[in-house]
């Protein structure tokens, strides 16, 4: 007997009737009681999204956010009981949600918020000893082919919007009134110790770090960044990675 298929379907679709076969001790309508389960499921999923996407919620207001999150939760319920990482495709949903079209930056702010949660829970990793890097200077011909593994809790988010400034203004850094949302910004998200930092970096530095992080060699990453911006500051970008303990392996053996 398959009870759970109609039960689950009715939980996520309020247009469906209460499932058959439910009874109550006092003969009252079980639909009213079934609504408790529906509330538990939908409200808890909307609350889960509100936890992760707090700035997104502040930007659009509670009523708009909860209505949008509710549509998403019913159409894209979690596939895993690990709820901390629920909502990975919520930013894409926002991007395609017509009532939010007037806020083209909203999806990227949501992406930033999700990457913060991912960074918060990402694996721990120790940085390479700087002396190992210094040793590479003895054979500079090997440097263009040098690959680095970057910290699992590091991510780059290039955006057409002022994603860092918009986010920061909701953390009490800078005034929202002074942010021009259309100005492109690139965010670097990384966990240092127990705290997740967000900082704005030049687009070229973002391309450099993202290319390295994808496992491509140093020469290629530097070339890509320089092509984007002739003034790309390679020493500064490498210094940032070193200072942030973000380089965790040199020339790692790549999985086949």
């Amino acid at each position: 007997m398959n009870v759970q298929t109609p039960f689950a379907a009715a939980l996520l679709d309020p247009a469906r009737p209460c499932p058959d076969g439910l009874v109550t001790w006092n003969g009252s309508d079980p639909a009213r009681r079934f609504q408790v389960y529906r509330n538990n499921v939908i409200v808890s999923l909307v609350d889960a999204l509100a936890d992760t996407f707090a700035v997104t919620q502040q930007l659009v207001g509670d009523e708009f956010f909860r209505a949008m999150a509710r549509l998403y939760a019913c159409a894209h319920p979690p596939r895993s009981p690990v709820l901390a990482l629920y909502g990975g495709d919520f930013p894409a949903f926002i991007e395609g949600f017509p009532p939010a079209a007037g806020l083209p930056y909203l999806a990227d702010v949501a992406r930033l918020e999700y990457l913060r949660v991912v960074a918060y829970h990402a694996a721990d990793a120790s940085p390479v000893d700087p002396t190992a890097l210094a040793a590479l200077l003895t054979d500079e011909s090997a440097l263009p082919a040098l690959r680095m593994r970057l910290h699992p809790a590091l991510a780059v988010l290039p955006s057409d919007a002022a994603v860092v400034s918009l986010w920061a203004a909701h953390q009490g850094v800078g005034a929202l009134e002074e942010v021009i949302p259309e100005v492109p910004e690139t965010a670097l998200i990384l966990r240092q110790g127990l705290e997740v930092d967000v900082r704005q970096i030049p687009a070229a530095a973002g391309a450099f770090i993202a290319t390295l992080g994808a496992g491509l060699p140093l020469g290629q990453a530097a070339a890509r960044a320089t092509a984007l911006d002739g003034g790309f500051d390679l020493a500064g970008a490498l210094g940032l990675l070193l200072q942030s303990s973000a380089i965790t392996a040199l020339n790692p053996v790549l999985p086949q």
Partner: peptide, 11 residues
């Protein structure tokens, strides 16, 4: 959980 979906409630 049902059909690959986690419903986040104890049903």
């Amino acid at each position: 959980s049902h059909g690959g979906v986690f419903l986040n409630d104890l049903l």
